[in-house]
Write a protein that binds this DNA or RNA. Sequence first.
DNA 1: ACAAAAAGACAAGTTTATTTTACATTAAGT
DNA 2: ACTTAATGTAAAATAAACTTGTCTTTTTGT
Lengths: 67, 67
Amino acid sequence: MKNTIKVQRAIHNMTQEELAKKAGVSRQTINTIESGKYVPSTVLALKMAGIFNVKVEEIFSLEPSDE
Amino acid sequence: MKNTIKVQRAIHNMTQEELAKKAGVSRQTINTIESGKYVPSTVLALKMAGIFNVKVEEIFSLEPSDE
DNA sequence: ACAAAAAGACAAGTTTATTTTACATTAAGT
DNA sequence: ACTTAATGTAAAATAAACTTGTCTTTTTGT
């Protein structure tokens, strides 16, 4: 899974910690998701999309290896 | 988390087993997600959205208890 | 260059998602 | 009423998400 969290954070001028607080998770969770180490739950994906005011698809997208 | 999987299946005239096969998971996984027992990963949510040709937000939505 | 803030990384532990197997219930067609 | 397909449910086992804590590295501002 690819993601555009870093870009979205830049657009909204937000640190990992700020995003983590808004999303209700730890900073490390944001960090590891952002670096592609694991895939978030749908709840967290929806929360992030809400925070950035975009659709989930604009943040997360499937890759060939996900199928 | 609420979901509209049952409705989407009805629209596309698809059984849980067919959806499961298309999404690459077990029927029970579809069943338990559909009945709200747990939340799928973002990969699975994106796959379902792709199968039904809608955005993730049209299938899954946050509830007060998710925040 | 220095200090502070932000980000990256890693390990151990807890919680939650997912699979498998198996059985019970419901719905639909004949 | 009978049969079959579809769905609901549940326990046990495994995999993956998430937390907490800590330490290192990079970035940014002065």
